[in-house]
Amino acid sequence: MEQSVDIRELNERIKNESSFVDLLTIEMNKVIVGQKHLVEGLLVGLLSDGHILLEGLPGLAKTLAINTLATIVDADFSRIQFTPDLLPADLIGTMIYSQKKEEFIMKKGPIFTNFVLADEINRAPAKVQSALLEAMQERQVTIGETTHVLDKPFLVMATQNPIEQEGTYPLPEAQVDRFMLKLVIDYPQKEEEQMIIRHNLAQSFPKASTILKPDDIIRARKVVKDVYMDEKIEKYIIDIVFSTRYPAQYNLEKYEEMISFGCSPRASINLSLAAKAYAFIKRRGYVIPEDVRAVCHDVLRHRIGLSYEADANNITTVEVINDILNTVEVP
């Protein structure tokens, strides 16, 4: 009985703490038309302290989305266009000699902000990618001999252009794994596109209002971690992740030769965190299987390595995840 009281209290607390989610969504929807999945993904990433890899064609409001989020949260935002001649120092900063002071002073790079949009991350060489991914992982940057902790919240949204392959440096699997979510966004619907035209042709483009402070996000993150996850849900997550490693054990023998490597334990951690964040967005104090399934594609799609056989059969990770979700028994 005591446990049920706890969960009711937790439910109430989460309902109160997550009240800003609706407001935030309304503000986002003022500026971003459609792209509900992108907005939800951004929120999940923001609330679970994860970073987002975004794949989509140009002009789908990627920059606008993260910029709007920064405005709503009253956070700093910077956009870095990754190019082949970009250097790590251009990203994290460097020591420059000041003639006035007659000493080396630190020049901070654009990474010292709350929200970073790393545009076309696969255009920069590996050393720049590594510098960014290290900052994402460690949440700190070392310039010269001094280590600087990055501001909180720190969210990186990196984009990849799925069309062009020539002259790009695709992220290695180990580095892609560091992104909590990989969102794939598509074109808006007809009605949504009509609304976009109207927004852009109006006298003044809609602007989002600041309704939160970065501290609110940090507090919300703590609450997200308190969202209750039952043992049954944990086992469900483990089953999903294990089915990517040992498909035959889950009646998915057809993928035995098609999956070259399955998801890492980081996938289990991120799937749990993202499911909790999703439950929080839905203003629930506990995780249900729907939450896991809702974030499963975004968490796992970049963590499953497909073999050449899968490529030859036009099998995508989306199909693999769909089959897994349709085969693994829901608790």
Partner: peptide, 10 residues
Amino acid sequence: SDLVKFAKFT
């Protein structure tokens, strides 16, 4: 059933 199974509901 979901509430009992996943939310410790009594």
